[in-house]
Design a protein around this nucleic acid. Structure first.
Length: 474
DNA sequence: ATGTGC
């Protein structure tokens, strides 16, 4: 291990980085930039490291705006890996007086949602094929163009889930027609921030605010990449008191949803990437990292409102994905309770200590907060509780982390046998064969060391472990 | 991340 580590440190030094490592925590800084805060990375010695991701972190910490504002701290989670917009996935950025749209990216309010159901695994598996066929209809072919009233859509984008619910009570359309709206209302408390950010519908694509009935092809769909819907079994409970309080018990069925704001986030993210570039002060050189901050107060407020608009959409997307699961369960098994445990965003800018905290693939881990860390398909996922650790900027990993790129997984010549991909015994439902390969367990780091390192560092504690039964990938 | 495209 040591020679390998020394090689990495030397390679990074050649690229202009100053790196130290104490066996748990890396500290990274651009050489010769003593004013920039060092970026910290929690990473146990047995996990693979990527030079590019370190470089991206060091550049993020060194970010400056000629108009003022400052980066206070940068921290990365143990699942961090290079991002293609110049900001590593797993970065947490604490700023004052400036905001970095690229530190959230286009996948705004990507997040996790977890439900449990009082249904035995045996009963569920006895109707597995029926269940899969119905969900395929919903997630892959069927429930496209989800209808909602223009009023509900506008209220959602502006006020989030409570606004949407208020308008939907009068005119339930689409998936909402079969929903228990009183239950959805009661569950809003278990959505991070109440699922209610202050948005502005004018930042959303025009189609979402059209008069009359809005028909949206993206709503209640999983989306690509690492997004998924997974049916699991609660295989072990570590913190019985907390699990009980959250409604989680051993042997229950669970539903885990990983999805985001679909094309709405892309629309907002791309628009603000342009605006941020145009807002860069005339004559000032562009940072070589390509990462641009906003410092102007009105622009910062405008961006945060746009981000919130997409975030509100993502909250509803995850809610409706869960609602389709819940309705399908009722169709197959009668009156099954499938209450929400928690819904938490891991790509969002939120107020923190008088400034802003931008998380890109990092789960909030405030004291007592539920933290959801999914393993790859076929691996255990974790329900944790945050410890409110300040050194980690109250942030945990959002998964195991990608070990190999989608491209490197799918290219010819690679061993695509089930065994090599780690897919033996994995029940993955997707219409696209290449998705199973790109997202196979072999593309991801092992989840155990990622979780353990965060427990040892006092960031999270284990509440329950969830074993996969079947996974839907778009 | 994106009704993706290396």
């Amino acid at each position: 291990m040591q020679p390998k580590l020394n090689r990495l440190l030397r390679a990074l030094a050649r690229e202009g980085l100053e790196v130290t490592y104490d066996g748990r925590l890396y500290s990274v800084r651009l050489l010769g930039d003593a004013n920039a805060p060092p970026a910290e990375v929690l990473l146990p010695p047995d996990l693979p490291v990527e030079g590019k991701a370190f470089q991206q972190l060091a550049h993020l910490a060194a970010l400056k705006h000629p108009g003022g504002g400052e980066v206070l701290r940068v921290r990365a989670t143990p699942d961090f890996h290079p991002g293609d917009s110049g900001v590593a996935i797993g970065s947490v950025l604490h700023t004052r007086g400036l905001v970095v749209p690229g530190a959230v990216g286009t996948d705004i309010n990507c997040g996790m949602r977890l439900h449990v159901a009082d249904l035995s695994v045996e009963d569920f598996l006895s109707r597995r094929d029926d269940f899969v066929e119905r969900m395929k209809g919903h997630y892959f072919f069927g429930t496209r163009d989800v209808a909602m009233s223009s009023r509900a859509s506008t209220a959602l984008l502006r006020d989030g889930l409570p606004g949407w619910l208020l308008e939907t009570l009068d005119t339930p359309l689409g998936c909402a027609r079969g929903a228990d709206l009183a239950q959805l209302d009661a569950e809003v408390d278990r959505v991070h921030l109440g699922g209610a950010l202050h948005g502005n519908p004018s930042w959303a694509p025009d189609a979402l605010t059209r008069e009359g009935v809005v028909r949206d092809a993206g709503l209640a769909t999983i989306g690509g990449g690492n997004h998924f819907v997974e049916v699991q079994r609660v295989e072990a409970v570590e913190d019985r008191a907390r699990a009980w309080a959250w409604g989680v018990r051993e042997g229950q069925l669970a539903f885990m949803i990983h999805s985001g704001s679909r094309d709405v986030g892309k629309h907002v993210g791309v628009a603000w990437r342009e605006r941020t570039r145009k807002a860069w002060p005339q004559g000032a050189p562009f940072p070589e990292s390509g990462i641009l901050p906003l410092a102007d107060e009105a622009l910062v407020a405008g961006y945060l409102e746009a981000e919130a608009t997409a975030a509100n959409y993502a909250f509803l997307n995850r809610l409706l994905l869960a609602e389709l699961l819940r309705q399908t369960l009722r169709e197959l098994f009668g009156d099954v309770e499938a209450p929400l445990v928690y819904d938490v965003p891991h790509n969002l800018t939120l107020p923190y200590e008088g400034g802003w905290l931008a998380r890109k693939g990092a789960c909030p881990a405030g004291d007592g907060q539920p933290v959801i860390i999914p393993g790859s398909m076929g691996a255990t996922s974790f329900l944790m509780v945050g410890c409110g650790d300040a050194r980690s900027l109250e942030s945990a990993s959002h998964g195991a982390g990608r070990a190999r790129s989608r491209f490197s997984m799918s290219r010819g010549g690679a061993d695509h046998s089930e065994a090599a991909l780690g897919l033996s015994g994995v029940d993955c439902i997707s219409l696209r064969a290449e998705r199973r390969v790109e997202e196979a367990p072999a593309a991801y780091k092992p989840i155990r060391p990622v979780v353990d390192s965060q427990v040892e560092a006092g960031i999270v504690r284990e509440v329950a472990r969830l074993a996969p039964l079947l996974t839907f990938k778009a």
